[in-house]
């Protein structure tokens, strides 16, 4: 069932005001939308990243719910431990609430550093939801390259220059890696499509077993876009097919959004400062290659969804 915004009013309380994420950050939008999708009490953990450090600067916490600090690599392990402890307490009759377990990780803590803990947790089949807010780099420490950084983007560890186009290789397809754990519900969404994200979060909470949602959550600071453009840029990613919205359940892939006419990838590239070197003469082949990869990937998803 679709969500109506007017019925959700007053539910945006899990992450409170007073957190110290940058103006226009996409991460709190993702948190807000995901946490509003359930009425059950939540226990949350976060892997190290912007979200974790900016919401819990001592002696303050912006979480209006039990929240556990986790290191960079083990949000998956932390959430499985919490959920197992909850099951033990339930068995002993110490708790009678239906608590849901939620983990947040950035792309650094999910694509790279926390991948083995996440994979382990998915494989063991704990009942939890893992949300990766993907801002395509280690933005908390000043835009280092991660496995999620797209080809052609300039980062401090792979900067654009005379001999460099920024990142030389394509990004890792994490949602499909999560989907390769066949017991898991895996989905890809974006903060620009709140209905899509909230429906997927609801499904993930209700799913008996592990669930993973990969949410595109722009970093206005290091994508070099104005702070007001967060939603617009995320929307552009979906409309250019750079970031397709899809979900995989019981090994069946559903494409949730198919643009009537997909916008060319150049629209997405020229909107962001981290790609500005690609607009110089001589870099056209790079843009062509990015476009080819985007189209090939979308075709691949279409093929999987129609089987």
């Amino acid at each position: 069932m679709a969500f109506l915004l007017k019925d959700l009013l007053g539910k945006d309380k899990i992450l409170t005001s007073g957190h110290r994420l940058c103006p226009g950050c996409g991460a709190p939008m993702a948190v807000k939308m995901v946490t509003m999708a359930t009425d059950n009490p939540l226990i949350i953990t976060s892997a190290t990243g912007c979200l974790e450090v900016s919401t819990t600067i001592y002696p303050f916490t912006a979480w209006d719910t039990p929240w556990v600090h986790s290191a960079f690599e083990n949000a998956g392990a932390t959430i499985s431990g919490l959920q197992t402890a909850f099951l033990a307490w339930k068995k002993k009759g110490k708790i009678d609430k239906e608590v849901k377990f939620l983990a947040f990780g950035g792309d650094g803590g999910t694509y790279d550093i926390g991948l083995q803990a996440l994979s382990g947790a998915l494989e063991r089949g704990h009942d939890f939801v893992y949300v990766c807010y993907d801002n395509q780099g280690y933005m908390n420490t000043g835009a280092q390259r991660s496995a999620s950084t797209p080809m052609g983007a300039s980062t401090t560890t792979e900067p654009a220059g005379k001999k460099s186009i920024g990142k030389r290789i394509q990004r890792k397809d994490l949602t499909m890696i999560a989907a390769a754990h066949h017991n898991a519900y895996a989905a890809q969404s974006s903060i620009s499509h709140w209905q899509d994200l909230m429906s997927k979060a609801k499904k993930a909470f209700e799913y008996e077993g592990p669930a993973f949602i990969n949410v595109l959550s722009p970093c206005v600071r290091f994508w070099r876009v104005p702070s007001s453009k967060t939603v617009e840029i995320a929307k552009l990613a979906v409309e250019t097919n750079f970031w397709p919205l899809f979900e995989i359940e019981n090994m069946k892939l559903t494409l949730n959004f198919k643009p009537k006419e997909r916008k060319p990838i150049i629209d997405w590239i020229k909107a962001q400062g981290r790609y500005k070197h690609l607009l110089q003469a001589g870099n056209e082949p790079v843009i062509d290659e990015i476009q080819k990869e985007v189209d090939a990937y979308f075709d691949y998803l279409v093929r999987l969804s129609s089987i």
Partner: peptide
């Protein structure tokens, strides 16, 4: 006002959920 070390709970846990509301951004 910051608390002294004797007033801080063990392991530095924050026992007041959502107290970031006291921090005006």
């Amino acid at each position: 006002k910051l608390k002294g070390w004797k007033e801080i709970p063990e392991a530095g846990t924050i026992v007041e959920p959502g107290n970031a509301r006291n921090y005006k951004t």
